[in-house]
Design a binder for these strands. Structure first.
Length: 224
DNA sequence: TCATTAAATTGTT
DNA sequence: AACAATTTAATGA
């Protein structure tokens, strides 16, 4: 995934629009770079856009008043996010931070509402996405308290390869072990150990600066 | 195109 | 957290 055009081509909601809708919607969507460590949006801000990840990697997290941070999920290229806040007309509930230099698509709130009011495919997409996310988060509640670090990392990685939420990506993902550590909330050393175990189990292949998934289904189930 | 160097990432302690 | 080894990317001959 490299260009805004490719992101839109890979996104189900955009594919299903008719020509007239496309002409109206696409020109309003623009792209903006975010440097590694930078915020795409902050907890407490009003939402002005719906966002997509053209390229890069984000984490969704919050910081408690005591200063502890919790990461909820990672967002790879192909992800669209922020609809929850737009739909409810609330303030953002999470921080979205770039784990590395990233390029983020912005769809203005007005366009989002226009699609919401007239496009069935767009509504269908949101419904599917919210449903898929719900499944992910319920899975996280389970593994957060029940599973050992290897399994936590396995499932954390599996979520990044959800083809419904993050289309347009192959079986390989450029992600460093340090970045995986940030997402899963474990040390880089522990990530390294876990990846070696998962490779022995033939679930994935460790590459320099990335991983290749060999068995997504078993990765999802790991530790169950 | 190839060799050299710097930077990033990995694997280990 | 620190270290050495490995891989990649960038540079210039």
């Amino acid at each position: 995934m490299n260009t805004l055009e490719e992101l839109l081509a890979a996104s189900a909601w955009a594919r299903d629009l008719d020509d007239q809708e496309r002409d109206r919607v696409f020109p309003t969507v623009f792209e903006r770079p975010v440097a590694a460590g930078g915020y795409v949006c902050r907890k407490g801000e009003p939402a002005r856009h719906w966002h997509g990840v053209v390229d890069g990697l984000l984490k969704m997290s919050t910081v408690s008043s005591a200063g502890k941070s919790a990461t909820f999920t990672g967002l790879p290229a192909g992800a669209w996010f922020g609809e929850g806040t737009l739909l409810k007309n609330e303030l953002r509930k999470y921080d979205l931070i770039a784990l590395r230099d990233s390029r983020i698509a912005h769809m203005p709130c007005a366009t989002f509402r226009w699609l919401l009011d007239r496009s069935i495919p767009f509504n269908r997409f949101l419904l599917d996405q919210l449903n898929e996310r719900l499944g992910q988060f319920i899975g996280m509640c389970e593994f957060d308290r029940l599973l050992d670090p290897d399994a936590r990392i396995a499932r954390c990685l599996a979520t990044l390869f959800n083809p419904l939420l993050y289309p347009g990506n192959g079986p390989t993902l450029r992600i460093s072990q340090e970045e995986i550590g940030h997402l899963a909330g474990v040390s880089r050393q522990r990530v390294n150990q876990a990846l070696q175990q998962l490779e022995r189990d033939r679930l994935l292949t460790v590459e320099y600066g990335g991983i290749r998934i060999d068995d997504l289904e078993r990765l999802r189930q790991y530790g169950a």
